[in-house]
Simulated scan of single mutants.
Amino acid sequence: MSLHIVCPHCHATNRVPADRLTAVPKCGACHQALFTALPVELTEDRFTRHIDNNDIPVLVDFWAPWCGPCRMMAPAFAKAAAILEPGMRLVKVNTEEEQSLATRYQIRSIPTLVLFKGGREISRQSGAMGDQEIMRWAKSTIQ
């Protein structure tokens, strides 16, 4: 079975055999690693591609640079990305720069984590969390 994985660099959609996800797969278009162990910063024009075209769950951190709890949670979110990949893609959306996404997903407080699977929102959690809490919540939600 193959999975569709969107490249964090060039945003091309790649087919990767499910049993090869942990073998450091590379993008067929730009030849860079499909998993970087870091959250991917997304703008509105790339957001839909990642949500709709990834066959793995996508965990989105809606945040803003002026938000103290968001800045405090950023290292924990990065640490969670390093552990949860390649089974899950972690991305960040700056709500100051991407206000239309914040409006579309009715983000009322930040930080807010939203978990997508199969192109649809399956759960959300508001408030800062540590890396262990992020991973526990995300894993329990997708099972």
Rank of each mutant, 00 (worst) to 15 (best):
G87F: 05
L3D: 04
I107Y: 07
F47Y: 15
C7S: 11
E121A: 10
K139W: 02
A29F: 10
I56N: 07
K92Y: 08
G119F: 09
V60T: 11
D55S: 04
S126T: 13
V58P: 02
A102R: 09
P65H: 06
C70Q: 01
G28P: 03
H11A: 12
V93Y: 10
M1A: 12
R49M: 12
N54D: 09
A102S: 15
Q99K: 14
M73Q: 10
P25S: 08
P75C: 07
R49C: 13
M135W: 05
P57K: 00
E41C: 07
R136A: 15
S140G: 03
W63P: 05
W63M: 11
V58F: 07
L90F: 06
C27R: 05
R46G: 06
G87K: 07
C27N: 04
Q132W: 03
F62Y: 13
R124G: 05
C67Q: 01
I122W: 04
P111H: 06
I107R: 05
M1H: 08
I122A: 02
R71C: 00
A76S: 15
G28E: 15
R136E: 12
R89K: 14
A78G: 04
E121D: 03
I5T: 07
I51G: 00
T22E: 12
P75W: 04
M135G: 01
P57Y: 01
I51S: 02
G118H: 01
T36F: 00
W137G: 06
T48G: 13
H11Q: 12
S126D: 11
F47P: 04
D55G: 08
L113Q: 04
S140C: 02
L90M: 09
Q143S: 09
R20P: 00
L3T: 01
S2I: 02
K117T: 07
G87T: 05
E121I: 06
A29I: 07
L21A: 05
V91C: 12
C27D: 04
I107W: 05
K26R: 14
R108K: 13
P86K: 05
T36C: 00
G130I: 02
T103F: 12
R49A: 15
P57W: 02
I51Y: 01
P65Q: 13
